[in-house]
Design a protein around this nucleic acid. Structure first.
Lengths: 150, 150
DNA sequence: TATTGTTATACTCTATAACTATA
DNA sequence: TATAGTTATAGAGTATAACAATA
């Protein structure tokens, strides 16, 4: 039993998926936060704006399902985006309980810029991976979460 | 512009590393929490115990660096593990400011069981991936976080 | 009776400043 | 002067219960 630890043995942790996934996520999110600071967008806000841009009229419930958010936690986020004139709430066409979410006029420009910046952020983190490796990585991540766990 | 969204278009998000990494992490951590409930160990507690087991005498500062924790947030976690008789704090051999962390007597048995269970948990999440795919996934995740971002 | 959105609230996780004792 | 550990505290993220309006 060594009295003083100099080199840390992480061999057990390093073979576990969760440990590696968490450390990779920290690296990706850290770079994302840095690159998105100019737009003042956190990852969830970026995802919400992107889904609204690609799916005009989407409801809060659909956003919650897609992004694994709980409805009470989405309310304040949407309020903030409305206050920043990035989105607007409109009456839903067929369900008067729901609200249809749309980008505010002019917000599509900012969203496009942010999306381009997000791709650049990925580029930084994945810069030392080949194109094939990147595709493989994303495909394998999808395979992890896109399958019913039964 | 569709009035009602039925099928959600996630094509933009799905090409981004952060989105896929987050969803994969949620799946992995969810399974981990379920499988570790019997031991009442959260992911961070499991990692701390594993590092102490593999590195007897490791200091709190070394744990913080390895697991990306902030010192104030580790204190309570270690206190709880001491109270549960899983670890003990001992004087450091060469630095009287530091404390050397060790597993408590008998805790190695629980840690080994938990590590075995963690591997089983990975097995569930990765069950539909081939052995080669799993190795590739972990290797690529390491490549993402183990490289200087410059 | 079930669902959408909302309020209020609590619990966990993460972050910062400041202190002590040692180096 | 710098570092290891600690305290107190604040903020962000995530969770449940309950309500009004609508299906």
């Amino acid at each position: 039993m060594p009295e003083v630890v100099d080199q840390i043995d992480t061999s057990v942790l390093e073979q576990l998926l969760g440990y590696n996934a968490r450390r990779a996520s920290l690296a990706v999110i850290g770079q994302f936060l840095e690159d998105m600071a100019e737009f003042n967008l956190r990852p969830v806000e970026f995802s919400v704006l992107t889904l609204i841009a690609s799916n005009p009229g989407i409801t809060a419930r659909q956003l919650c399902q897609q992004l694994a958010l709980l409805p009470p936690n989405l309310v304040g986020l949407l309020n903030a985006l409305v206050k920043r004139d990035l989105i607007r709430r409109e009456p839903h066409a067929s369900d008067r309980r729901a609200t249809a979410l749309h980008l505010a006029c002019g917000a599509d420009k900012l969203v496009k810029k942010a999306q381009s910046r997000a791709l650049q952020s990925d580029e930084k983190v994945l810069g030392h991976l080949t194109a094939a490796e990147r595709q493989t990585l994303i495909a394998l991540l999808k395979k992890v979460y896109a399958t019913p766990q039964l």
